[in-house]
Amino acid sequence: MQAEEYPLLQVRNLRKVFEGLVAVNNVSFEVERGTVFGLIGPNGAGKTTLFNVITGIYAPTDGTVVLNGEVITGLPQDAIAARGVARTFQNLQIFHGMSVEDNVLVGCHRHGRCGLLATIFRLPAVRAEERQLRNHAMEALQFVGLQDFARAPASSLPPGRQRLVEIARALASEPCLLLLDEPAAGLTTHETEVLGELLQRIAATGLTIIIIEHDMNLVMDICATVAVLDQGEVLTIDSPSAVQADPRVIAAYLGEPQPEEGGAGG
């Protein structure tokens, strides 16, 4: 059977309970190849928890996640990442002690093969791999427009650019699925515009994306489908315009303040 017959990602009856608190309840959806899927909902709706279950940070209480026809629930986080699921974090998780280029090079990790012995002797194979990974990282940096900051310490950049470092790091892994957790959180209006333009370009490459975002303009611009989550459950899955007109969605948001939910682990 061809893998292409399946949607890229299938989430089936996913449930996550923390000590009696139901964070994600019976969530099911599918993401088609090459589309941008939006995930919205008020604070505490379980959006980040859903990301954390899909990427293997948490094991689900119940339900399955199927990537390319393969069940990935229960796999460790690094094994899921090795299958091409890349993500960014709502609370920035850049490597502070490293340069921008080295941050992005870590993203290339899954494309390297050389072992410890070859590495400490710096055999020709290691040099060749290093050159290849560096070219790769540089392409990702150019794509997000950070090529001039390659040597800068990542911690020296303003938050807006650190967000771009995270995106470049995720892109450098050449993922089949990219999960973006509130990429516009904490950005200025101008930075959000730059980000929107970047996300359009990423989507144009045909990469499948799931994005959690509060900025509705951004969501309307780039998403083909939007799922609304409320109190851990799917309220509706529809086109952005239909979702915006849905009275249940408006009710769920009513009186809810906008800013952030949870943490990278929340």
Binding site: D78, A86, Q93, F95, M98, R110
Partner: peptide, 19 residues
């Protein structure tokens, strides 16, 4: 770099496929 990444953020290191 994988080791240095683990030192800075284990969760991000694992999200980059580092065991």
């Amino acid at each position: 770099r994988a080791l240095r990444a683990i030192h800075d953020s284990e969760i991000a290191a694992r999200s980059c496929a580092i065991n």
